Amino acid sequence: TSEDEWQCTECKKFNSPSKRYCFRCWALRKD
């Protein structure tokens, strides 16, 4: 669900929880 998505701190895109990197800008997920 969208509620589980995380928001990239670099480009603000919301990504799948299973992705460690942002799909748009490839920044590593910040915990």
Rank of each mutant, 00 (worst) to 15 (best):
T1W: 04
T1R: 04
T1V: 10
T1H: 00
T1F: 03
T1D: 05
T1Q: 02
T1S: 04
S2N: 14
S2W: 07
S2L: 06
S2Q: 15
S2V: 06
S2R: 10
S2H: 09
S2A: 08
S2F: 07
S2T: 13
S2G: 08
E3T: 09
E3K: 11
E3R: 03
E3P: 08
E3S: 08
E3C: 06
E3W: 01
E3D: 08
E3N: 05
D4M: 15
D4N: 12
D4T: 10
D4K: 03
D4Q: 06
D4R: 05
D4I: 11
D4C: 02
D4Y: 04
D4P: 09
E5G: 09
E5R: 06
E5H: 11
E5T: 11
E5F: 09
E5K: 06
E5P: 07
E5C: 12
E5L: 09
W6T: 09
W6K: 03
W6N: 13
W6C: 06
W6Q: 14
W6A: 08
W6Y: 06
W6G: 04
Q7H: 02
Q7Y: 03
Q7L: 04
Q7S: 02
Q7F: 10
Q7K: 13
Q7R: 04
Q7I: 08
Q7T: 02
Q7E: 11
C8P: 00
C8N: 00
C8M: 01
C8L: 01
C8S: 01
C8E: 02
C8Y: 00
C8G: 00
C8T: 00
T9F: 12
T9C: 03
T9Y: 07
T9L: 04
T9W: 03
T9S: 04
T9N: 04
T9G: 05
T9I: 05
T9P: 07
T9K: 05
T9M: 09
T9H: 10
E10P: 01
E10K: 04
E10C: 09
E10F: 09
E10R: 05
E10N: 12
E10A: 04
E10V: 06
E10Q: 12
C11Y: 00
C11G: 01
C11F: 00
C11V: 00
C11H: 04
C11A: 02
C11T: 02
C11W: 01
C11S: 01
K12V: 02
K12I: 04
K12L: 03
K12W: 03
K12C: 04
K12G: 15
K12S: 10
K12E: 15
K12F: 07
K13S: 12
K13H: 10
K13W: 06
K13C: 11
K13Q: 13
K13V: 08
K13F: 04
F14K: 08
F14L: 09
F14C: 05
F14Y: 14
F14D: 04
F14A: 07
N15M: 05
N15F: 07
N15P: 05
N15V: 10
N15S: 10
N15E: 14
N15D: 10
N15I: 11
S16Q: 08
S16C: 07
S16E: 10
S16R: 03
P17I: 01
P17G: 09
P17D: 14
P17E: 13
P17H: 11
P17L: 08
P17M: 09
P17S: 09
P17Q: 08
P17C: 00
S18L: 04
S18V: 05
S18D: 08
S18Q: 08
S18F: 03
S18R: 05
S18H: 13
S18A: 14
S18T: 11
K19C: 12
K19G: 05
K19N: 12
K19E: 15
K19R: 13
K19I: 07
K19M: 03
K19L: 09
K19H: 13
K19W: 05
K19F: 03
R20C: 07
R20F: 14
R20V: 13
R20Q: 15
R20P: 14
R20K: 14
R20D: 10
R20M: 12
R20N: 15
R20G: 13
Y21I: 12
Y21M: 15
Y21S: 12
Y21F: 13
Y21K: 14
Y21L: 10
Y21R: 14
Y21H: 12
Y21P: 12
Y21G: 10
Y21D: 13
Y21E: 14
C22R: 01
C22K: 00
C22P: 02
C22L: 00
C22S: 00
C22Q: 01
C22W: 00
C22E: 00
C22Y: 00
C22H: 01
C22N: 02
F23Q: 06
F23A: 15
F23P: 06
F23T: 10
F23E: 15
F23V: 10
F23S: 11
F23W: 13
F23I: 12
F23R: 04
R24E: 15
R24W: 14
R24K: 08
R24S: 14
R24D: 13
R24A: 12
R24Y: 14
R24N: 13
R24T: 10
R24I: 02
R24Q: 11
R24M: 06
C25Q: 01
C25D: 03
C25T: 00
C25L: 00
C25V: 00
C25N: 01
C25Y: 00
C25S: 01
C25R: 00
C25H: 05
C25W: 00
C25G: 00
W26V: 11
W26Q: 15
W26H: 15
W26T: 15
W26R: 15
W26C: 08
W26L: 13
W26N: 15
W26S: 15
W26M: 15
W26K: 15
A27D: 07
A27F: 02
A27C: 03
A27S: 10
A27P: 10
A27K: 08
A27I: 03
A27E: 02
A27M: 04
A27N: 13
L28H: 03
L28I: 08
L28A: 12
L28K: 14
L28Y: 03
L28N: 09
L28V: 14
L28P: 11
L28D: 13
L28M: 02
L28G: 10
R29M: 08
R29I: 04
R29G: 15
R29H: 11
R29Y: 07
R29L: 07
K30V: 12
K30Q: 15
K30C: 03
K30R: 12
K30M: 13
K30A: 14
K30N: 09
K30P: 14
D31Q: 12
D31I: 06
D31Y: 02
D31T: 07
D31C: 03
D31F: 03
D31L: 02
D31R: 05
